[in-house]
């Protein structure tokens, strides 16, 4: 067997230029970008395979764009950020959103359901200090996004896969099944069937490794809805076995509350609640 050319299969020989990677932050907790620094074993080798051109949390050396890959953390919550994300798009060949905030609006998207009047009042109590939008929206609501990495927080192995794949010019391989499959592979007993604990696992995208059921609690949807999630089916069933919307609504309105499939079913639940309470008032 000859060695010549073999290395080209997995390395990026013939790609003299290391991809320039930037990390941008919007409204978020920093946990997702920290995931990169949490790749302790891989950090230095990753850093030698790519050019970390802009990553303020890790480096004072902040170079100007354009960038080959921009990792974007956080959601859009201020007028300034509405403009800044456009700049990021202009500067970036590939935009990857990382985490629930960037892909679905994050926990701060709960403001989208807030009492709007009350919310405005509190903002305008000191309008000269702050500017903030009434909604928290995912990056994709503002610019075209090339790849979305889910999770609150993201899985660092998946982040590495995305970086390596993009550096090699291929599509990242991110599994797209429900949390249930991971539970079964781990040998975890279903907390819903065996204990009656409401669990979003059946409609939640894998990525965390199905940790919550292994820790004896229901999944609360950190990785957002799985592809073709049948959230209505799940909620209908939970209601049929006696879980009330008082339990289900907050479960759905967590870190991926504004993900369309979760939002649709939680809205359905809350409007049913509203109709019911209206009905009881008439009685």
């Amino acid at each position: 067997m000859s060695g010549k050319g073999d290395t080209s299969m997995a390395s990026n020989a013939g790609r003299p230029k290391k991809p320039r990677v930037a990390v941008f932050k919007f409204a978020s907790c920093d946990g997702c970008q920290l995931s990169l620094l949490d790749c302790e074993d891989e950090l230095l080798s990753v850093a030698s395979a790519i050019e970390i051109a802009y990553f303020p949390e890790a480096s004072s050396d902040m170079r100007e764009g354009p960038y080959d890959v921009s990792l974007v953390e956080g959601s859009i919550t201020t007028p300034h950020d509405v403009e800044r994300i456009q700049f990021v798009r202009q500067q970036s060949a590939v935009v990857v959103t990382i985490g629930a905030c960037a892909t679905a609006g994050g926990i701060q998207s709960l403001r989208n359901w807030g009492n709007h009047e009350e919310f405005l009042k509190c903002v305008y109590a000191s309008p000269e200090y702050i500017s903030s939008l009434a909604t928290s929206t995912p990056i994709s609501a503002h610019i075209p996004v090339d790849f979305e990495l889910r999770g609150c927080p993201i899985n660092r192995h998946q982040l590495l896969e995305v970086i390596i794949a993009l550096a090699a010019g291929r599509k990242p391989r991110i599994p797209n099944h429900s949390v249930c499959l991971d539970c079964k592979i781990r040998g975890t007993v279903c907390v819903e069937v065996a204990q009656g604990i409401p669990c979003l696992g059946p409609v939640t995208h894998s990525g965390c490794g199905a940790i919550c059921p292994d820790f004896n609690r229901g999944c609360y949807g950190c990785f957002g809805p799985v592809m073709q999630a049948n959230c209505d089916g799940l909620v209908d069933h939970y209601q049929s076995v006696g879980h009330t919307s008082e339990v289900l609504l907050p479960l759905l309105r967590n870190f991926n509350a504004a993900a369309p499939q979760f939002a649709a079913v939680s809205d359905r639940l809350s409007s049913a609640d509203a109709r019911e309470s209206e009905g009881s008032q008439h009685v």
Partner: peptide
């Protein structure tokens, strides 16, 4: 850093949700 209004949406939540939410 944009404000994220944690205190606002903690109100009315189950107290069991607090450790998960404030972690964020």
């Amino acid at each position: 850093e944009p404000p994220r209004f944690f205190e606002a949406f903690l109100r009315g939540r189950s107290l069991e949700d607090v450790p998960d939410i404030t972690a964020r």
